[in-house]
């Protein structure tokens, strides 16, 4: 196999093309995925204000739907991205998980103290956060997986 320097430029260009093809598949229809994902994140957060067992049903049901959504999206695109790779994108996913978790705890607190009206604003906050951070994740993923000489 040749280690011809002249050939190296063409091979690096081929690497970039191949990576772009995968990245474009991941980005394809991602706004629809983000919209549904964020809607169920909102249900997960807002549902915590409800009494038992409705709050458990909201979190378990939404988690199940999010898992199915991710699986279906992977099958459809033929590309699987868990969210926890690559390295920098992982921190965006962890931040999103922590913030959604924090909002869920606020929901549980609101439910226990009788502030049921908190449910709607918490759900909206969850939706907006999920939309913003999933868009940010996509940007970081695209930047991080791009070939840089």
């Amino acid at each position: 196999m040749s280690q011809d320097p002249e050939n190296s430029g063409a091979m690096l260009a081929e690497i970039k093309r191949s990576q772009d093809a995968v990245r474009n598949r991941v980005a394809k229809a991602s706004w629809r995925y983000q919209l549904v994902y964020s809607a169920f994140a909102a249900v997960m957060v807002g549902g915590q204000v409800a009494p038992m067992p409705l709050n458990v049903l909201a979190s378990a049901g939404s988690a199940g739907v999010l898992m199915l959504l991710w699986r279906r999206w992977s099958e459809k695109t033929g590309v699987s991205v868990m969210g926890y790779t690559p390295k920098h994108a992982r921190w965006v996913a962890i931040l999103l998980g922590a913030l959604i978790g924090g909002l869920m705890l606020a929901g549980v607190y609101a439910g226990r103290t009788g502030h049921y009206w908190w449910g709607a604003p918490l759900a909206v906050s969850g939706f907006v956060l999920a939309m913003i951070l999933s868009s940010l994740w996509m940007r970081v993923y695209r930047a991080e997986t791009a070939y840089r000489p």
Binding site: M11, E14, R23, V79, T145
Partner: peptide, 22 residues
């Protein structure tokens, strides 16, 4: 280094998993 395998590795480097047919 072989062109086909280089392309496969490049595709796999941009995701966790890629389906065989893709």
């Amino acid at each position: 280094h072989a062109p086909g395998r280089l392309q496969i590795c490049a595709m796999l480097s941009a995701a966790d998993e890629v389906e065989f047919s893709v």
